[in-house]
């Protein structure tokens, strides 16, 4: 029974000249629509380079958040991690809720987002407000000249267990 109705459907769209004509029209209209949507996706983007150097590890103090690279979408943070010891990592400045830029409040020791009030600890872990997950970390390494280099083409998310990845921090 199912086979018969399927054959009926095929006959409707390919069985007659009329059917073929309508099918071809529909297919080309759909193709043009998809093509138009694809056209709206630009192929070339003018974005700044994803890698940049931020200075030597000794430039950063333990327990401090470095705001200097905020316009390049990164905070450089150096803390004493209970397991890993003294580490430096680069936090993305994009709030995981709706993409505003939080502010580091030194007095309260937290990142607070002005849009909807999400709060993140210095580690980037969310603890208040609507943000669904921690801030992301960028890849960071010590370049050949001894400077720290942030690479924004790679990101590390805590909820996926990626913060254990040695690329996501630098041990001092």
């Amino acid at each position: 029974m199912a086979d018969k109705s399927r054959r009926g459907f095929l006959r409707t769209i390919f069985g007659t000249w009329f059917g073929i004509a309508w099918t071809a029209l529909t297919a080309s209209a759909a193709g043009m629509t998809l093509g138009t949507i694809r056209f709206l996706y630009p192929n070339a983007l003018s974005e700044p380079p994803s890698k940049f150097k931020v200075g030597f590890p000794s430039d950063f103090e333990t327990g401090q958040v470095d705001n200097r690279f905020k316009d390049q979408n990164a905070w450089i943070v150096r803390i004493r991690d209970p397991q890993l010891g003294d580490i430096i990592y680069a936090l993305s400045t994009t709030c995981t809720h709706l993409g505003c830029t939080p502010n580091w409040l030194e007095g309260e020791q937290k990142f607070k987002c002005p849009c909807h009030g999400s709060g993140f600890k210095i580690t980037g872990v969310n603890f208040e407000g609507p943000a669904p997950r921690p801030l992301e970390r960028w890849a960071i390494r010590i370049a050949e000249d001894g400077q720290l280099e942030v690479d924004k083409s790679k990101k590390f998310q805590k909820e996926l267990g990626q913060w254990d990845d040695p690329e996501s921090y630098v041990k001092v």
């Binding site: 987002c113 002005p114 909807h116």
Partner: peptide
């Protein structure tokens, strides 16, 4: 406009503030 500094508070246009209020309770 600058992407480095978000004004505090950052609000959507007023006719969408009902939606923004919903964002306090629900995910985007």
């Amino acid at each position: 406009a600058t992407t480095a500094k978000a004004p505090n508070p950052s609000k959507a246009p007023w006719y969408f503030l009902g939606l923004q209020e919903m964002l306090v309770y629900y995910d985007p």
